[in-house]
């Protein structure tokens, strides 16, 4: 890194309707993590266990939006992050969870909570503590404004590293030469 920022950039991450695979891939940047922690510090993230997101420079969202809690988290990130990034296929287009979209929600829930083999007298949970599912799983750009997108299932460590170093150095990030893939 040629020019270090004057202060450490604050970065928050979250996984919505995703599998944490993108977070795992983030860790796959391996020894670059050492470089990274020299220039950034983490806010809310599964890596820190901070629960509330504060003002940040960069927010990274994995996963699509499948329920009301996802909407709240996503909005909170948008409010607090100057730059918000969609990380991975699910955040970009709904991905695997969105493949439930052609099944009516009632059918989905009944299948899981009432008709699954082994379930007796099952009920669709209605505890007010629980977030309600949306009728369809949506990519995050349909809910808040997103500044950058990193596709991939998951995006590779090198792709994430390239993207972040571009961004931190002030270059418009680009994924080329095999770093861009959708699967």
């Amino acid at each position: 890194m040629s020019t270090l920022p004057a202060r450490k950039l604050r970065v928050a991450t979250a996984s919505l309707a995703g599998c944490f695979g993108c977070h795992m891939s983030f860790l796959d940047i391996d020894e670059h993590l050492f470089e990274l922690v020299d220039i950034i510090e983490f806010d809310r993230s599964p890596l820190t266990d901070i629960k509330e997101v504060g003002p940040c420079d960069i927010g990274i969202i994995e996963g699509g939006v499948c329920n009301s809690e996802n909407v709240h988290v996503l909005r909170e990130f948008r409010r607090n992050c100057k730059t918000l990034i969609a990380l991975g296929a699910c955040a970009v287009n709904g991905g695997l969870p969105a493949q439930r979209n052609h099944i009516p929600l009632a059918e989905c829930l009944r299948e899981v909570y009432q008709f699954r083999p082994g379930v007796e007298n099952g009920q669709i949970p209605n505890d007010p503590e629980l977030p309600l599912p949306l009728d369809k799983v949506r990519p995050i750009h349909e809910v808040v404004r997103i500044d950058y997108f990193i596709p991939g299932c998951p995006p590779s460590g090198p792709a994430i590293w390239k993207f972040l170093t571009d961004l931190i150095a002030g270059r418009t990030p680009r994924l080329t030469g095999g770093l861009l893939h959708y699967d």
Binding site: S68, P104, L105, A106, L109, I124, P125, N126, P128, L132, P133, L134, D135, K136, R138
Partner: peptide, 12 residues
């Protein structure tokens, strides 16, 4: 509106 179906299913 995207929550309407879930509201109906859970009577919430």
């Amino acid at each position: 509106a995207a929550l309407a179906e879930a509201r109906q299913l859970t009577a919430r």
